[in-house]
């Protein structure tokens, strides 16, 4: 149902008691600050903006290999909530190597499995936002690919 790496993360979280789940989310949130572009990296698409759906600016960077494997880098403003930071690191790891088409098909219903129902509330809905942004940039990449194809457009 979910792509391989993401499925492994989901299975791990589902096996954890609540206290360890929170601890793992904190670890991922800390790791999120290291998901930005490295020196010298080049990307096919960059999308940096402050949307109304999130409390701070989020930058999404996409590189697609000749084998159509996606690699994401993401930058987060300091006001982004901790759960959103955690979801950023989880998604960068869990969706790494998928094709743009596969990215588009990732369902959002895994979020409560990772975060836990107690932590999903109206005021923390931005946990879904990062996946939306990643899908958005994958959609743009696909549209450009179609436009560039000999009979595309």
């Amino acid at each position: 149902m979910y792509p391989g790496k993401l499925n492994q993360i989901i299975a791990l979280f589902e096996s954890l008691p609540d206290a360890e789940k929170r601890e793992s989310l904190i670890s991922y949130a800390t790791a999120a600050m290291k998901q930005g572009p490295r020196d010298g990296e080049a990307f096919d698409l960059e999308d940096i903006r402050k949307d109304e759906e999130c409390t701070d600016t989020v930058g999404v960077f996409l590189k697609v290999s000749p084998q159509r494997a996606c690699a994401f880098r993401i930058t987060l403003g300091s006001q982004v909530q901790t759960l959103t930071k955690a979801m950023t690191a989880i998604l960068c790891k869990g969706l790494d190597g998928l094709t743009p088409e596969e990215i588009m098909e990732v369902p959002a219903d895994f979020v409560p499995k990772i975060v836990g129902a107690e932590l999903v509330r109206q005021r923390s809905q931005t946990v879904y936002y990062i996946l939306t942004r990643m899908k958005g940039i994958a959609r743009v990449w696909l549209n450009r690919e179609r436009s560039a194809a000999p009979h595309g457009g």
Partner: peptide, 9 residues
Amino acid sequence: NEDILLYDT
């Protein structure tokens, strides 16, 4: 807090 995990950090 509003940020539900902020205390834990």
